[in-house]
Amino acid sequence: MTRAHLPGILAMATIVVASNILVQFLFGQWLTWGAFTYPLAFLVTDVMNRVYGAGPARRVVFVGFLVGVACSLIGTQIMGEFGPLVTLRIAIGSGLAFLTAQLLDVAIFSALRDGRWWRAPLASTLIGSTVDTALFFTIAFSASLTFLEPANDVSWAGEVLPILGLGPAAPLWVSLAVADWMVKLSLALIALIPFRVITARLAPAA
């Protein structure tokens, strides 16, 4: 890790901290404000991978993971209306989803890096985002994993409703996951623009 990697480290840490704060604030019925900041972590990882390589990208991911763990530990000590802001299931889901999805992003990007400029960031982000969403919401809210934290009542997330109010009936947490996933996919496309601009400026100096 060199001083050149510091902007990536700071960007990742800032995104993780901001997302942990903004996830406490609702945006409409199915989302939180954190849904719009968290996907930027994939942009940071992909820029680091393109400019500096897979090794530095993984190290930035691990920094983000450690910052996320710290945020979770702090969140468990802050009491909200219904208990701690961060429960054990949310902490496990968040950490495991982040680390798995980001490392998968690095691996897929590296495998596709010699193709057209947009293939690696788009494919790695789409797949990583899908895995991230599936892992987090399943671990944090699925009734089948209640044994992870029996004292934590997440029955509200199991209320059966039409998906996003329109689709077939499913537990509420599925609607939350689908909405989150759709935002991630949309931002994966939008992020191609700053990815192209940033890497074009940094690559000559890398």
Rank of each mutant, 00 (worst) to 15 (best):
A203L: 15
L40I: 09
A70D: 00
I198A: 02
P56G: 10
V61E: 02
F141Q: 00
L122C: 01
A170L: 01
L189T: 12
I139F: 02
I74V: 15
V69R: 00
A123L: 09
I139R: 00
E159C: 07
I78L: 03
L31C: 01
V63H: 04
P171L: 06
V51S: 03
D132L: 11
G53C: 13
E81D: 15
A177Y: 09
L126K: 00
L176W: 12
E81P: 09
G28Y: 07
V131F: 12
A123Q: 01
L6D: 13
T87P: 02
A111I: 07
L73G: 08
R58E: 15
M79L: 13
S110R: 05
M48P: 03
L103S: 15
L112Q: 05
I92L: 13
L135I: 10
V160A: 12
Y38H: 03
P7R: 05
W156Q: 03
W30E: 03
W117V: 10
T14A: 15
F137E: 05
G158V: 03
Q29K: 14
I163L: 01
A170H: 03
A123M: 09
F27E: 07
T125C: 09
L192V: 02
V51K: 00
A188D: 09
L99F: 13
R50G: 14
D46Y: 13
W30H: 05
W33V: 01
P194T: 10
G68I: 01
S186R: 08
A134M: 09
V131R: 05
T76Y: 09
L166S: 06
T125A: 10
T199Q: 01
T146H: 09
L145R: 03
L22W: 15
D114K: 09
A179R: 01
L161N: 02
Q102F: 15
L145V: 08
V86F: 07
N20G: 13
A151T: 15
V23A: 09
Q29W: 14
P204I: 06
A151V: 13
L96Q: 04
S142L: 05
L176P: 03
D153R: 04
A101V: 14
A107S: 12
P162Q: 02
L26G: 10
V69K: 00
D114S: 12
K184L: 08
A70L: 06
W33E: 05
I92C: 04
N49M: 11
A101G: 10
R201N: 07
F36W: 02
V178Y: 10
V154D: 14
G93E: 07
G8N: 00
L164N: 00
L176Q: 08
G128P: 12
F36R: 00
G64Y: 14
L43E: 04
S124M: 13
P194R: 03
Q29S: 13
D105G: 06
V47E: 04
D153G: 08
F65M: 11
V160Y: 13
V60Y: 01
V47M: 02
A111Q: 04
L172V: 15
L103Y: 12
L166K: 01
L40K: 00
A70R: 00
V51W: 06
A188R: 08
F195H: 00
A191H: 10
T138Y: 10
F62S: 10
R58D: 11
T87W: 05
F82D: 15
I15V: 07
R58G: 15
V51P: 02
I190W: 14
